[in-house]
Design a binder for these strands. Sequence first.
DNA 1: AAAGTCTATTGATCTACATCAATCACTTAG
DNA 2: CTAAGTGATTGATGTAGATCAATAGACTTT
Lengths: 190, 190
Amino acid sequence: MYDALKATFDRIVPLSDSDWAFALPLFKYVEYKKGELILREGEVHHHSIFVITGALRIYNFNGNKESIRNIFLENSMFNESGSYYLKKPSLFNIDAIEATKAFIMHRNDAEVLFSRSVQLATLGRRFAEYALATVVERNNELTSMDGKARYLKLLKEKPHVFQRVPQYMIASYLGITPEALSRIRKEIAG
Amino acid sequence: MYDALKATFDRIVPLSDSDWAFALPLFKYVEYKKGELILREGEVHHHSIFVITGALRIYNFNGNKESIRNIFLENSMFNESGSYYLKKPSLFNIDAIEATKAFIMHRNDAEVLFSRSVQLATLGRRFAEYALATVVERNNELTSMDGKARYLKLLKEKPHVFQRVPQYMIASYLGITPEALSRIRKEIAG
DNA sequence: AAAGTCTATTGATCTACATCAATCACTTAG
DNA sequence: CTAAGTGATTGATGTAGATCAATAGACTTT
């Protein structure tokens, strides 16, 4: 049950058996039904989530339209950073696109964990650093590429997402409307 | 000379005298002339930069137009995250908007530093976490607010920037053209 | 099979903002 | 004092993508 978790973490920083023995009980196993709301806008997000299988999304509303910020598939770890790290009310909702199995860890437990050894502290640092690098990259895409270029990049780098997520969610993730994405696809196909 | 640095760091994680004695020699003091190029697109960014006084910006080119990603004033620490953490060629340039005094630390020294104690490891983690939270917030602004709303938010949250940075750079930071910003200002004033 | 619900497509129109071009105000150098 | 930058403003026009509305295919539910 912990295999995927261990493999993912060990790829970042190898941990001692002692650190693992300390870490594993701090994770709580949870299952989310398809469509289940995990975090509601306005609540503070207290947990980091490691997706074992399934798919979660984080999104907010622009007016009455959903705007998807990110989609997390298996073996990815995330939280609502602004809320989790700064303890502010979340600007986003999190829900399950698919039935999902996950481990979650409370911020307080994570702080204890990351204070236990330099290896664990480094693990925590690497997660934040990696997340930071990817968010900056996404930021750059949104400001310097148009919809078509963003679509082609996603198609190239994460083709598997298209097998699992409906097109209107892809459009939302790309920052455009379903109509605009449909026209981009038509233009490319034609 | 180290006062601002110490005060900023201590606000995040208080360090022991021993840790400070270890840390300080790893910083290198540098001065940048106004307009000086610090990092060129395509190079790997090896240093984190702590701004003592002055102003630096990170930007790239969309076609032949500069697009400013961020501006860093005194007592802020940053690096080109994608390049620094993933050791990839930078997508951005960094240069000095004003004459600037700074400390820089090489990634290799930072890794040594953050592996020395749990306190120092936590300091490194907090920097990444805080940067992550702010980048996510900026990301959200760029996708869910229009130019006018972004301008008003900046005016409210960082009014001092307007005293120091020309309007066309503000426009670029906001993701709009100088012409568009000028019209927004006119509309608000009128 | 019929009815209802989603998702994707297509067309018509609208809008925020970009682009191009000219002018104006300020500063700095000769 | 004058010329030459440099930054900000204003006007005219262009465009990517939003919005609104209709249609059609695919899936469920009964």
